[in-house]
C-alpha cells in the first residue's frame, strides 16, 4: 500500500498527537508565553467551558505583539489570536491534516472528540513523526551534520 493510501485510510487518532496547553480568552499574554516556553510548545489553545476550543495563540501571535509594541502584561490572548485556527476530528483521515499543512500552511490543528472537546494537537510535527515512522529504514539511518561520506573521502 502506498503512502497516499495510508494517509487516506488512517485516522487522526493514529498520529502522535501532542498535549495541548489550555488557556481561556482572558489569560494574559505573558502567562501564556511562560506556559508555552516551559512546555516547549509553539501554541496555546483558547478554550471555553467544557474544553471547547475557540482559538489559538501561537508564536506568530507573539511576534505580532512585539512588533506592534503591545504590552504582554495588559493584553489578553484573545486580542492576538492566530487567524490560522482549525479543528479536526479524531476520526478524520490524516490526509485532512496533511492537506491543511501543505496547501494552507497550517502549523497546528486542534484535535477534538465527537463532543467537540479538545483532546490534543496535530500538525507539522505530528506529520513529520508519522513520515519518520513510515519510512524509518530511510530516515532513521541518516547522519545529520556530516558531509556525505563519498564526497568527504580522500581523493574523492
Amino acid at each position: 500500500m502506498g503512502f497516499l493510501e495510508d494517509l487516506e485510510k488512517e485516522q487522526v487518532k493514529d498520529l502522535p498527537l501532542r498535549d495541548a496547553i489550555v488557556i481561556n480568552e482572558h489569560t494574559i499574554a505573558r502567562a501564556a508565553i511562560a506556559l508555552m516556553r516551559s512546555n516547549d510548545l509553539g501554541c496555546s489553545v483558547i478554550v471555553q467551558r467544557e474544553w471547547e476550543p475557540t482559538g489559538i495563540f501561537t508564536e506568530q501571535s507573539v511576534i505580532r505583539m512585539l512588533h506592534e509594541g503591545a504590552s504582554l502584561d495588559s493584553n489578553p490572548v484573545s486580542k492576538f489570536r492566530d487567524p490560522s485556527y482549525r479543528c479536526v476530528g479524531l476520526t478524520d483521515s490524516i490526509r485532512t491534516v496533511w492537506d491543511a499543512v501543505v496547501e494552507e500552511g497550517m502549523r497546528f490543528m486542534c484535535v477534538v472528540d465527537h463532543e467537540g472537546q479538545l483532546v490534543g494537537l496535530a500538525g507539522q510535527r505530528s506529520l513529520a513523526d508519522y513520515v519518520c515512522d513510515c519510512y524509518a529504514r530511510q530516515v532513521a539511518v541518516q547522519r545529520l551534520g556530516s558531509k556525505p561520506w563519498m564526497l568527504e573521502r580522500e581523493g574523492a
Binding site: 513529520a128 519518520c132 530511510q138 530516515v139 532513521a140 541518516q142 545529520l144
Partner: peptide
C-alpha cells in the same frame, strides 16, 4: 544549527525535522 547538505538523501531533511526536532 542542525544543517543538511544538498547532496544528502532527502530522508536527511525528514530526520532533521522529525528526529532532531528542528522545524
Amino acid at each position: 544549527p542542525t544543517i543538511v547538505y544538498s547532496e544528502e538523501p532527502a530522508a536527511a531533511a525528514v530526520a532533521a525535522i522529525a528526529i532532531a526536532g528542528h522545524r
